[in-house]
Design a binder for these strands. Sequence first.
DNA 1: CTAGAACCTGACATCCGTGTGAGTTTCTAC
DNA 2: GTAGAAACTCACACGGATGTCAGGTTCTAG
Lengths: 124, 124
Amino acid sequence: MKIGELAHRSGVSVRSLRYYEEQGLLVSERSPGGHRQYREEALERVAFVQRLYAAGLSSSTILELLPCVDTPSFDTSLAALDRMAVERERLSAHITELLETRDALDLAMVRARSAQPNRQQRPR
Amino acid sequence: MKIGELAHRSGVSVRSLRYYEEQGLLVSERSPGGHRQYREEALERVAFVQRLYAAGLSSSTILELLPCVDTPSFDTSLAALDRMAVERERLSAHITELLETRDALDLAMVRARSAQPNRQQRPR
DNA sequence: CTAGAACCTGACATCCGTGTGAGTTTCTAC
DNA sequence: GTAGAAACTCACACGGATGTCAGGTTCTAG
């Protein structure tokens, strides 16, 4: 699979895929002419990386976690495992915060609606 | 309350408070000499803004939501109310995604640990 | 063999909340 | 009245993922 196809199938730009590789988050083989060649697994990898980006992790953090996913789990992954636990907690805390934020929005909406009798209350 | 005190009490830098004002997210009166004066409510406002920033909203989006919170809810807030509902949905979707991501991390950790018999399973 | 699509590298641009520094003015306390 | 803390404005810098352009090479179809 070449980079264009991977980009298309994963929904990530070609530019970003190259960036991931530059950051060590994605590997490729090269054709004799130097074009990147990906195997199927790259798709999952890209999705995973995107997921972690969306969760607010940085490239370098993701890089630290990867050994835990990649290697069949040896020494290398011990540190990664701890790191992952840390990030897992950070993520949990963030989720909690977002839930509170959503509640705050809900409250604001209810308040606003109650001062606006012409508007239908929207069911939850 | 002057800006230094507000910064200290809210845990937000002076720089950021001025930025919020520049973006229309926070208002202040001015002393004869031009120093910003805040009333107590500013504290909640700052917390609210910070919360929304943390939830990934931009200044301009937050600005659109504020009428819904500020005004006793009149015409002005109708658009804001809709906008808020939209953002509320976006936030909900994001939370869902983060929950999935957390699950993915948990799964990865379990996998890694199971290939690493020397390590104690950590209770959830 | 050739045209055009797709790929390559490298570099610079963007967004946006925040940090930081310079140079000035106002406020507070002695 | 004077020193120092704190405030003011203006402007430039950053980080980090992504966009975009330039100039060149490789691949693929006709």
